[in-house]
């Protein structure tokens, strides 16, 4: 890896993102109070950044594991690249989460002080295990170790990835007293968003040139799945008489996904960018809408229903999470993929 490889437009954009995001993250970690939050609007864009990146990582892991277990040549050739991508996204998500929690050390405290009834504990622990499994697989691949244990590792990674995405939904689905959160649909939504956004980021990070058809098929298929799920939810919201249900699905979320599902093969990278953006929007809308109706005395402080708009600091943390993921992926690509004999493998 040569120094001149860092003087590229890609690294300039990443560095700008890191600096922009780090400014706000340091401010939030040291002084606090920079986010557009209050005691009624509790989880906002920084947490959504974590959810978005973690789900994206999950989607990449699921595609990779499925491809490896079913011996898909196009996917197995890119195993190292996909491992680096999944791990980078997850670390980027953890950076955003660490900022939201007020200290990166809180992530460790969460895992090592278990409450076995808490969905958040399971979610955090599963994603930590997922990161360890991805790194173990990556190290084994870099060292050229390939054996029977790899299949077990792949099955474990797949199982943990699916469970982690479902558990992330359960964090919201098990909430009582908030009409927009409660229910099994939250877990189905997070798993579907993981698949769609994971396929999207794989397409977006493919090197220029030939784009394997399997990824385009995955992108279109998962977009169709998400469009169907959102349509069902939209139908439920339209006909619902549940008190305090605000509803978070709009036609403008469904339409782009339907277009990608039908015509995504023509401009796959544009389609992938669209799916990634819609996935972020869906997760943000879901998380925010569930908190819009303020509960109990908080309604006296903030009004019965709150509006939310992310501020610059929150956008900064979104940028930081994405920039960290991009930096790690780019670093991995330069170190292990471009100059090695296994380049692109």
């Amino acid at each position: 890896m040569q120094l001149r490889n860092f003087f590229t437009p890609t690294w300039a954009v990443i560095a700008a993102g890191l600096l922009f995001g780090a400014y706000f993250a340091i401010g939030e970690l040291s002084v606090g109070g920079m986010l557009a939050t209050n005691n009624g609007m509790i989880w906002t864009l920084p947490l959504v950044t974590y959810i978005f990146l973690a789900l994206m990582s999950t989607g990449v892991s699921i595609v990779l594991c499925h491809g490896t277990l079913t011996q898909r040549d196009e996917i197995m050739r890119q195993q190292r690249s996909l491992l680096v991508l999944a791990a980078s996204l997850l670390i980027g998500g953890f950076v955003a989460l660490g900022t939201e929690l007020g200290s990166p050390l809180h992530l460790f405290w969460l895992v090592f002080s278990p409450n076995l009834t808490s969905p958040i504990w399971y979610m955090g622990t599963l994603y930590s295990i997922e990161l360890v499994l991805l790194l173990v697989k990556l190290v084994r691949d870099l060292q050229g170790h390939h054996g029977r244990i790899d299949q077990s590792l792949t099955w474990a990674t797949l199982g943990v990835a699916v469970a982690a995405a479902l558990m992330l939904g359960a964090v919201f689905g098990t909430v009582t007293g908030r009409a927009d959160f409660h229910g099994l649909h939250a877990s189905i939504l997070t798993l579907t968003a993981a698949l769609a956004s994971g396929a999207a980021v794989i397409v977006l990070t493919q090197p220029s040139g030939g784009l394997p058809q399997i990824y385009i098929r995955a992108l279109r298929g998962f977009s169709a799945l998400m469009a169907i799920l959102l349509t069902l939810r939209w139908g439920y919201e339209v006909h619902s008489s549940v008190v305090d249900l605000q509803g978070w699905v709009t036609v403008w979320m469904i339409a782009p996904l339907a277009v990608v599902a039908l015509f995504g093969g023509r401009l796959p990278r544009t389609a992938a960018a669209l799916v990634a953006a819609v996935s972020l929007w869906v997760v943000l809308a879901f998380v925010i809408t569930g908190q819009m109706v303020t509960l109990g005395p908080m309604a006296t402080w903030y009004g019965a229903v709150q509006a939310y708009r992310p501020n610059l600091a929150e956008v900064g943390i979104l940028v930081l999470g994405i920039a960290v993921a991009a930096a790690l992926f780019q670093l991995g690509r330069q170190a292990w993929l471009s100059s090695s004999p296994q380049a692109g493998r």
Binding site: W43, L101, V175, G177, G290, L295
Partner: peptide, 18 residues
């Protein structure tokens, strides 16, 4: 407390503050 605020989101009475 790690400041995850899960208790605030889960409390149906809105009586936990951060």
């Amino acid at each position: 407390c790690i400041g995850c605020k899960a208790c605030m989101v889960s409390c149906p009475y809105g009586v936990i503050s951060f």
